[in-house]
Simulated assay, not measured.
Amino acid sequence: MWTRFAAIPAFELAVWSRQWLGWWCLAAVLAVVVWLWLNVHLFKPVEPTSWAARGIYGEQLHVDAKVPAEHKATLNWLIASGLTGFALIAWGLTTLNIWPLILGTVMVVLAQLWRIDRYGLLFQQHLREQAPDDAA
């Protein structure tokens, strides 16, 4: 997960580099895209023992539509915040304007970190609900 976070500024720099590299910036963009593809295939799935791993397993519950109502509103808000940040990034990269780029990047990263934390809580709740009742 952490290696994918590194792709955010790398992609932004690759796109911004069109100022200096012209069309050659596409090689840098392609390198980031290839890294993101390889990233998924190079690293084996991990046990849910770390904060990040629990977040990844919780995200799978969201994908599988196993999200309790108390988590849905927060997750939807965080997704909307991340999309707003992404729009600011797109604006900043399109116009080569640094402030929307930085603001958008901060919004995307913070929303993603909070979302991963929420997914981790969701995963832990799921494990508690699936655990056999020891009191019986």
Rank of each mutant, 00 (worst) to 15 (best):
W114N: 06
T105C: 01
V109Y: 11
R18D: 15
W35P: 13
L101V: 05
R54G: 01
W77E: 09
G85F: 02
Y119G: 12
L93S: 04
G82I: 01
I102G: 02
I116S: 10
R115P: 02
E129F: 00
A135G: 00
I89K: 01
G104C: 05
A135T: 07
V34T: 06
V46M: 08
R128N: 10
L75F: 14
R115V: 03
I116K: 05
V32N: 14
M107H: 11
V106R: 03
L101C: 04
D117G: 13
L75Q: 15
N76K: 12
A73P: 07
W91S: 09
A90H: 04
F86W: 06
L88N: 06
V33G: 10
L21Y: 13
T49V: 07
T3E: 15
V15E: 07
V34F: 13
Y57D: 08
P45G: 04
T49H: 00
A87D: 00
A111E: 05
T74F: 13
L42Y: 08
L103E: 10
L38K: 04
E59P: 03
P45H: 04
D64L: 12
T95Q: 06
L21C: 12
R128M: 12
L93A: 01
T84E: 01
V29K: 06
I102C: 10
L30N: 13
